[in-house]
């Protein structure tokens, strides 16, 4: 009984080790196909990031220089570390009433942890995560970004 158990242990051990060697041997012989390394600075032109990669918060504008941000400040409240600061203004409407709109959407990239909470919180899909990641600069001030483009206004029909 003891001996069969003993030899079964040896057999199982040797077999699992050989399975491992088969796997690494496959990787070694099929290196050209199996290598997963992205040689980053060299393949910058062809580099594609995967979907869930979050690089920075951006505000998409359409061709008429219009965005979807209503200035509701939901993102500013949702942000756990004060990355977003929205300055609003009262914009006169054609009918004489005034309506709240954004003046500047300040985004501090240096504080952002890419947690995605602002994008989730936004009721009108005004901001999203971009896949750019080459953010390094020499001056910290350059990381403070204004997301709405100069002269832009809110898209028609977004409340």
């Amino acid at each position: 009984m003891f001996l069969t158990e003993y030899f079964r242990t040896v057999y199982k051990g040797v077999r699992s080790l050989l399975t491992g060697m088969k796997t690494t041997g496959y990787y070694f012989t099929h290196a050209r196909k199996e290598i997963k390394t992205e040689e980053y600075p060299d393949n910058r032109a062809t580099l594609t990031m995967f979907d869930r990669f979050k690089g920075e918060v951006v505000m998409p504008h359409d061709e008429n220089n219009e965005h979807r941000c209503t200035g509701c400040q939901a993102c500013e409240i949702a942000c756990p570390n004060g990355t977003i600061k929205i300055i609003t203004k009262q914009e006169p409407q054609p009918d004489g009433k005034k309506k709240k709109a954004i003046d500047t959407f300040v985004y501090h990239l240096e504080l952002c942890t890419m947690c995605n909470l602002c994008v989730v919180a936004c009721p009108s899909d005004a901001i999203k995560m971009a896949q750019t990641f080459e953010h390094s600069v020499y001056d910290k001030k350059q990381l403070k970004k204004v997301l709405n483009k100069p002269g832009s206004k809110i898209m028609e029909g977004v409340e």
């Binding site: 690494t24 990787y27 070694f28 290196a31 199996e34 290598i35 997963k36 390394t37 040689e39």
Partner: peptide, 10 residues
């Protein structure tokens, strides 16, 4: 090199 190829690296 052997280490690299076996770990799917260069």
């Amino acid at each position: 090199k052997v280490a690299g190829f076996m770990q799917m690296r260069y």
